[in-house]
């Protein structure tokens, strides 16, 4: 039962995070929102591990979560680096992407 709860919470976090990526205006907030959405997916996956309990919880979702965290960390690092670079280049970190063309 608690697995279902975790799954639902994960899905809600995912949706909130997506909303944030799209709607938040500062770039840093977009990156944070992306991390929240990612955590939502991970939570959902961990809840899925509960499908099999005997003799031990399903290891596959946990492996996926571990890998996913690595990806999320590196993506976040790259995003932060680019934000710093952009600030350096333009002194204007907000939504500069729109006038890219």
């Amino acid at each position: 039962m608690s697995a279902l709860l975790y799954a639902v919470v994960g899905a809600v976090l995912f949706a909130l995070g997506l909303y944030g990526v799209v709607a938040a205006s500062p770039l840093l907030r977009k990156v944070l929102a992306f991390n929240i959405a990612g955590s939502g997916v991970f939570l959902f996956l961990v809840a899925m591990a509960d499908r099999v309990r005997v003799p031990f919880p399903d290891p596959v979702p946990q492996a996926m979560v571990l890998t996913g965290i690595v990806v999320a960390v590196s993506a976040t690092a790259l995003a932060l680096l680019l934000i710093c670079l952009l600030r350096e280049l333009s002194d204007r970190p907000r939504e500069a992407a729109d006038d890219g063309h």
Binding site: V21, V22, A23, A97, D98
Partner: peptide, 15 residues
């Protein structure tokens, strides 16, 4: 085209 390129519109379209 620039409207399609904005975050809000493309997020909405994604949805």
């Amino acid at each position: 085209e620039s409207a399609l390129g904005s975050w809000q519109v493309s997020g909405l379209l994604f949805l």
